[in-house]
Amino acid sequence: MTTAEWTERYQGAVMNTFGPPQTVLVRGEGVHVWDADGNQYLDLLAGIAVNALGHAHPAIVEAVTSQLTTLGHTSNFFATEPQVRLAEKLVQLVGHDARVFFTNSGTEANEAAFKVTRRTGRTRVVVAEGSFHGRTMGALALTSKEAYRAPFEPLPGDVTWVPYGDAAALEAAVDDTVAAVLVEPIQGEAGVVVPPDDYLRVARAVTTRHGALLWLDEVQTGMGRTGAWFAYEQSGVVPDLLTLAKGLGGGLPIGACVAIGDAGTLLQPGNHGTTFGGNAVSTAAALAVIATIEGEGLLDHVTTIGDQLRRGLADHPLVAEVTGRGLMVGVVLHQPLAAEVQKAAMAAGLILNNATPDRLRIVPPLVLSESEAAHAVTTLRAVLDEVSA
Rank of each mutant, 00 (worst) to 15 (best):
A13Q: 15
D307T: 11
A112M: 13
E29W: 07
S369I: 09
S105D: 09
Y232N: 05
D166W: 05
E8D: 13
L384K: 05
F114T: 14
V302W: 03
R118N: 08
A348L: 03
A113M: 06
A338I: 03
T23M: 08
V341S: 03
L337W: 11
A389G: 14
P21D: 11
A285K: 00
P364E: 08
A179R: 09
A147H: 09
D300W: 02
T292P: 01
W6V: 02
N354P: 12
G264N: 02
G312K: 10
V367R: 08
P253S: 12
H301Y: 07
R209T: 11
I305G: 12
V383S: 07
A374N: 09
G106I: 06
D35M: 08
G306H: 12
L155V: 08
V322H: 11
F132E: 02
D385S: 14
Q220V: 12
T274C: 06
V61D: 14
T208N: 13
A147G: 10
Q187N: 04
V322S: 08
A139C: 07
R361N: 02
G72D: 09
G38H: 08
T136W: 00
P196E: 14
R225G: 03
A36T: 07
Q11R: 15
G270W: 02
P58W: 01
P364A: 06
F230G: 02
R325G: 05
V194F: 11
D358K: 12
K246S: 07
Q83G: 05
D35Q: 04
G349R: 10
A147S: 15
G236Q: 11
L252S: 10
T70Y: 12
Q268S: 13
R119M: 12
R361T: 10
P357E: 12
E294M: 06
A344D: 08
K115L: 15
I260N: 04
G134I: 00
H96E: 14
G38T: 05
K246A: 13
K115E: 15
V329F: 10
